[in-house]
Design a protein around this nucleic acid. Structure first.
Lengths: 184, 184
DNA sequence: TTGCACATGTAATAGGTTACATGATTGT
DNA sequence: ACAATCATGTAACCTATTACATGTGCAA
């Protein structure tokens, strides 16, 4: 049981999901490939943290839908009571930013322009998601789902994503404004 | 030559540093332990990206001070011309946040209170650092070091750190305000 | 004399990515 | 036929952490 497996349990605490869906949904919080997730799910099933049933689909291939067990819920509760380790951010752009005076401003501009577009795309996706949540659970302006509402977690996470995205966009724009237009 | 080795080159492009110092300084941008960095430096030395000289110190043990070579500078310039890969953030608190309705609000409050203190400490360290940079290079309010100034990189990175820190503090405080005071 | 910061290294293990492999189903 | 998405799995490789190992110089 490593952090990733607790992450999978956390997702499964909301609803049963296939390994495929788990892989897609865990990306924003803890990036991992299916090659890491499928074997983990097997282990967790042996350890009785999860169960699965094979579900036949008419339009798509069969899938294995995993559900969290009571033992899994207990594991989650214990894990929540332990302090969370510090976040780990690895960003190539930060390493590059440190030595940009080595190259032409045009190179640096491209770097930050690409990153700006990356964050703008993310922002759009997140805004769409939060719009949907607000729609389906009709929340008033500034209102937050109740603490015991299963949507509470998704809501505060989406807000974090939005806030971080906006801050990063602001930073990229500020950096771009500090890069000279011509070859210096 | 992986990302970490380019990161080391990036740091060395400003000034020569020991493996020990490199380990400390790269943490905010690309966390790595000395056990990963020392062998990498040996490889990079064999590959002529860096050179080192042993420096005797009277008050502390001897150290190996690494400098970037011209070949290393060329490598850096090429690397800067390639697009930067997407940032990777792994944060246990985000995984936990998703399933906090499973536990008492007091548990959740502790989680976010600790994280808030973590960010407040970081903010203080970053504010001190930027204060020192502004002091030594006497910048006016809102002024940014010139693009070719070696401090340009450090300055924009510190600003990113400050902005992110403040946003995260704001988020933690907002989440804490949404957690009920009593057992719900 | 014990502990701490500085300083460098290797070995074993765990975590994560890339590549290989297969197959269903739908739409073009 | 072909590409795209869905779906699951393994093998090889690379990256990163933890543990082991050693030693200096200083201060309490």
């Amino acid at each position: 049981m490593n952090t990733l497996s607790y992450g999978l349990l956390s997702l499964l605490s909301h609803s049963p999901l296939s390994g495929y869906d788990l892989t897609l949904r865990i990306q924003p919080f803890w990036p991992a490939k299916h090659s890491q997730i499928y074997p983990l799910l097997s282990q967790m099933e042996k350890d009785e943290q999860v169960t699965f049933e094979t579900v036949a689909q008419s339009d798509k291939p069969d899938k294995k839908v995993y559900s969290i067990t009571d033992k899994g819920i207990d594991s989650l509760r214990e894990w929540l009571s332990e302090p969370a380790s510090a976040p780990v951010l690895r960003d190539e752009l930060m390493l590059k930013a440190y030595c940009v005076p080595l190259v032409d401003p045009s190179i640096t501009r491209d770097l930050f322009q690409s990153r700006l577009e990356y964050y703008r795309n993310n922002l759009q996706r997140y805004e769409e998601k939060i719009r949907k949540i607000k729609e389906t659970s009709d929340l008033d302006e500034g209102e937050v789902p109740a603490y015991r509402d299963p949507l509470f977690g998704a809501y505060i996470l989406l807000n974090k994503a939005l806030m971080s995205c906006r801050t990063n966009i602001e930073w990229c724009e500020w950096v771009l404004s500090a890069i000279p237009q011509d070859h210096t």
